[in-house]
Nucleic acid binder design. Sequence first.
DNA 1: GTCTATACCGTGATAGAC
DNA 2: GTCTATCACGGTATAGAC
Lengths: 195, 195
Amino acid sequence: MTMSKRDTYTPDTLLAVAVGVFIERGYDGTSMEHLSRAAGISKSSIYHHVRGKEELLSRAVGRALDELFGILDEPEACDGRAVDRLEHVTRRTTRVLMEEVPYVTLLLRVRGNTRTERWAVERRREFDLRVSELLKDAVAEGDLRADVEVRLATRLLFGMINSIVEWYRPDVRGAVDGEQVVDAVVRLAFDGLRR
Amino acid sequence: MTMSKRDTYTPDTLLAVAVGVFIERGYDGTSMEHLSRAAGISKSSIYHHVRGKEELLSRAVGRALDELFGILDEPEACDGRAVDRLEHVTRRTTRVLMEEVPYVTLLLRVRGNTRTERWAVERRREFDLRVSELLKDAVAEGDLRADVEVRLATRLLFGMINSIVEWYRPDVRGAVDGEQVVDAVVRLAFDGLRR
DNA sequence: GTCTATACCGTGATAGAC
DNA sequence: GTCTATCACGGTATAGAC
């Protein structure tokens, strides 16, 4: 949370600080005073860089959404058997989650009270729907089980993936290996706990 | 959110109202003014029933924790093969989640800033650890795969289960059948998506 | 058990000097 | 680009009448 060389902020470097505080205290629980202390500048200086608290939130969730939707445009998510495309999306989503923990965490905690939040919720649903199409195709191609409703399966799959933000901390080096997590997610999601 | 016959509150009936508001607006985003409007009484009247906002939170998460820990004491969670005990706990946890959505939702959203919240986080971790013991035993008995770390598997399992509170609404009759959800969770958790 | 009135403080945001 | 000073407002909580 410290600036490496420069001691002047851009919206993006300020965002990095703010997102950390939002996650620690919750968005609503964070005051401009908290942010100013964490950034080491006064409250009013923050307003020089961003319009206010909500702009910081919308920048954060926007970044997370861009990363996630980017996955759906990757060639591996567009060609081949649906089940392979789904596995690719599962792997990449998990990876993005871990690489962008703070931003995605914020995205996942948004509940839809302000305009910004409703927009974020909407786009998340859109992402889920895109993936459940993949799941539907994979069932139709005979690769996935047909005895679990597609929408429900998608929700549970993302529930598992998204929960990673609750405990994964990338800064703790060596504590949990990233690739190990991705493999575990894919194994459990596709083949389950049972031997 | 309406009182059926009585128009006077007990701490518990007031809690039911408050929990609903907490979930809609977030705990930090909820003011006593919001609560008073939802309950149809004045702010100060609320203080006659409870000490303040935080007591409402601690009552809510306490109730959720009692229900969850109750599961671990059920006979089916204590006798037999570990894998069967784990499946029982999985089923029951999912059920409790759906029956007590509002209270468990609140429990899961708590981050640990106040004393109450830290206590809740602590007890949740305790519950997780108890279940990961079950998982460890099931691996040792040869029923579960050994190529995923036990603690990691537990986290992902609960990630999937807990995510149900994000979308399941018990009041929407017939929209999603409860038993269907429990079965889906068990199938995905133990056998995975793959056919 | 509920009310009105109010104390007192922290909030997001702005003005204007440097 | 950052500061200090300040604003109007809404926050939790309490006092005391009914």
